[in-house]
Amino acid sequence: MLLDPRLLVLLAAGSLTTMAGGVVAPVLPEMVQQLHLNPAFAGNLVSMHCLTIALFSPPLGILADRIGRLRVLIPSLILYALFGTAGALMHELVPLLVVRGLLGAASGGIAAASLGLLGSLYEGEARSQALGYATSTLTITGIAFPLLGGWVGSTHWQFAFYLYGLGLPLALLAGLILKDNQPLQAKAMGTDSGSKLKSILGHPHTLRLLLTLGLASVSMYAVVIYAPLYLKATIQASA
């Protein structure tokens, strides 16, 4: 299964969601210094995409069920590359926050569509195994991308943003290799997805889970964002 090119493309596409914040955090101190940004607000550059991922993933998932997951995945990968690399051309906080937010919206489309396609490729135990591979990939890339971003950005912080361009070749591979096997009845069920989503999100267990995940994310990103700034200020550590 692991040698299935369809699975490899989906794993690579899904891993881009961890790249969204991972490659920027190591070069944030250099951005603050060279662009003369306020450190208190500059930290939003690393976390802004999380907000828009949360906002756009559910509606884009519903859209993928209605029009086809591949039709959402490929444009999302292209927009991911465009909005991500655009950050290298911005030199003020507000434009940077805007493109970071748009990057998160594209990441939401990638996450929703890639998981949907992954679930439709396999059945039963094979599906569980594929989802296990996806979880492992996200964990590994969550460690690898910050290291890669720090290494690439060690010459200049702008170079780290060019890594988002990986979305373009992945969009091409997705168009060549993947097929949307979404059954017709699943598309018909898309019209009921909105009401089902509301009932699920309103359930107390779901709310508690979301609250726990939110608090965990706050704790994690507090370290990810401000540890590089602290190290830069105290021991002049760089990416």
Rank of each mutant, 00 (worst) to 15 (best):
L117A: 06
G150D: 02
G214C: 06
I110V: 15
L163D: 00
E123T: 13
S199R: 13
I225Q: 00
E123Q: 13
F159W: 13
M189S: 14
L121A: 08
F145M: 07
G116I: 07
S128K: 10
L210K: 04
L213C: 13
Q182M: 12
A111L: 15
L176T: 11
R208I: 10
G108F: 05
Y164M: 00
A106I: 08
A227P: 01
L210Y: 14
K187W: 06
S219I: 13
L148D: 02
S195F: 08
P146D: 03
A174I: 10
Y226Q: 08
I200A: 11
G165R: 01
G108C: 06
L163S: 00
L102W: 02
S217F: 11
G142M: 06
A227T: 13
K187I: 05
L211H: 06
I110W: 03
L168A: 11
G165I: 02
H156C: 02
K232N: 15
S107P: 04
V152R: 00
H203Q: 13
G165A: 10
G108R: 02
W157P: 00
S114Y: 10
H205Q: 15
Q129G: 04
Y221F: 15
V218I: 15
A113G: 06
A106S: 12
G167E: 01
L215E: 10
A216C: 12
G132W: 08
L138I: 09
L170K: 04
I140S: 07
L184I: 12
L229C: 06
D192S: 10
P146R: 02
G214T: 09
F145T: 03
G167P: 03
Q129L: 10
L178I: 12
S199I: 05
P146A: 06
L184W: 07
L115M: 15
L173F: 13
T191F: 12
T135H: 09
E123P: 01
F161K: 00
